[in-house]
Amino acid sequence: MLAFVARRLAFAVVTVLVAVLISFLLVHASDTTPGAVRLGAGATAADIAAENARLGWDDPLWQQFGDYLAQLVRLDLGTSLIDGRDIEADLASRLPVTASIAVLATLLSGVVGVLLGVTAAVRGGRLGKAISTGSGIALSLPQFWVGVLLVYVLSLQAGLLPATGYVPFSTDPGRWLQSVALPVLALTIGGAAIVARTSAASMREVLGAEHIRTLRATGTPEWRIRYVHALRSAAVPVVAVLGIQFIALFGGSVIIENLFALPGLGQASQAAASSGDFPALVGVVVVATVVVVLVNLLLDLVTAALDPKVRAA
């Protein structure tokens, strides 16, 4: 078990390094320079050159990379080229927004999706068919379109929820929940559909398995067979999908944050992308990769807890 964790940890570190390297190389492949971005359109070539020299842009690549890694180890992501703000402080304040939406949407997708999927697998018939058709369509719908539709129906027509804006949890938990409800719903519709599909397929497969027949043959009550034994085996692929979902939602938050005017990581990366703010871009990539890697690590541990075979490997 210890070796297993160590291996996954090493993999996580390598992944983060690769992400940093890729974004670093991308930045250097660009035909603009940080000096030009920093000084804006009016700057002369000489000014830009001087600024680049000051920022260390002219140093050899490996040296810049080393410097950046050294910075990273001190948890320092540098300062923005646009307004000089501290990137790690900025991202640290944004992380909770994105994380809370992604976590809530993943949890809700998990609960709703597993309920629907298990119902479809256990009940079958017309209800099962309806669930599978419905989820097939729901998972293909563009999240931002669903988001706008939800705003129209729930916020403009029904007046139930605020359309945009974010209230921090620490300010007012009730209003925080209201402010994230629409984005979470918009993300959950597709997410729950994917989870429902996976859990229905997985549950169907497990219910037909030999060990379930053994349980029936020993007279085990049907509810126990379904919800203790089958669900436990069926949960392994579902957990994997939930992890992928969280990662996708975390990345996909860019669009939903834009739509609902939420001050999260996605909004930061959009702003950095449109302004060419290199350090901010690399910073977002690093933070997002770390989150993804940590979630994957957690997933591995959950899978190991569910599946004794993985534990032994």
């Binding site: 993999f11 390598v14 992944t15 690769v18 992400a19 890729i22 974004s23 991308l26 930045v27 492949a29 660009s30 990662i247 975390f250 990345g251 996909g252 860019v254 990581l265 990366s269 959009q270 950095a272 992308a273 449109s274 302004s275 060419g276 703010d277 290199f278 871009l281 690399v282 977002v284 990539v285 997002a288 990769t289 989150v291 993804v292 890697v293 994957n296």
Partner: peptide
């Protein structure tokens, strides 16, 4: 490929847009 899969695609794409 495992490493490639673990990268946050959307954010990387935005980084690409920011650069190219």
């Amino acid at each position: 490929t495992e490493v490639l899969l673990a990268l946050p695609a959307t954010v990387l794409l935005l980084a690409v847009i920011g650069i190219v």
